[in-house]
Amino acid sequence: MLRYVLGRLLGAIPTVFLIVTISFFLIRIAPGGPFDLERPLEAKVMENLNKIYHLNEPLWNQYLLYLKSVAQLDFGPSFYFRDFTINELFAQSLPISIQLGLSALCLALVAGGTMGVFAALRQNKSADYAVMAAATLGVTVPNFVVAPILTLLLGVWLGWLPVGGWNGGKFVNIILPVVTLALPQIAVVARLTRGSMIEALRSNHVRTARAYGLTGFMVVVVHALRGAILPVVSYLGPAAAALLTGSVVIETIFGIPGIGRYFVQGALNRDYTLVMGTVVVVACFVILFNLIVDLLYALLDPRVRYD
């Protein structure tokens, strides 16, 4: 098992390397540089800036320098947030994104799973249709619509919850962003759970469990749900990676200092190091969560073994 995990992690290194290489050169193709303003800089000033950030060196040299520092887990100075290094920015924002994303993930799993099981047990009845209609709505209405509506309703009109700000992750501040972030996921999880649950409830071994007079809870939770959760788990892997690395929309609307905004800000500001750092972090999360999903699979399904 440990060997398998190590093998997978080692195997991820070439992937990350490739991603770093591609994004390093791609971002530099974009017109404009990190220090271009609407007001053009004096040539000399630009030259000085380029010198400070090694941008005057040949591209391959910059690439090697970058690889070297990434290998030492140093993502370099931010070109835009000039008072910070990328590591400082991430150290500050990543925990926030993870807290937000994990909360949303748990909410999605619990709420979506419950709704899905509930709907599956009442398949083709009005409760089922209600849940599925809500789920469809959850998937189709984008969060840049949901967020303003929720903040207007609960924040501005009713005044129950703050409209924005992180405030050190206080519970009241976290509710709306978590809910907004989780809503589409709740919908997907509900749909997935319902589908696989219906299938599981129809399966022969659940019929066996019924035929042997097991209680409803045992039939539904012990025998049907454990198998039905597998597709949800494989969906949640990439979804978790996406949730935990932040959401531009949510962070911008709620004014949350997470990591999600950095990718867009970095790209728009041509903050090369910030973009690259975000790419590496996201890639690592995706790789990590795929691994976690595979390990979870082995935990849930004895037929899956890594040894």
């Binding site: 399966s203 022969n204 071994h205 659940v206 019929r207 066996t208 469990a209 019924r210 035929a211 042997y212 007079g213 097991l214 045992m218 012990v222 025998h223 454990r226 198998g227 849930l300 399904d301 004895p302 037929r303």
Partner: peptide
Amino acid sequence: VRGRKITMIFQEPMTSLDPLYTIGRQLAEP
């Protein structure tokens, strides 16, 4: 009565047992 006094076995032995639990656990449950 069901599963106790009247019991049933099925056509599909490959799928009639829960793949996720051991034989012992499934035998013990009822």
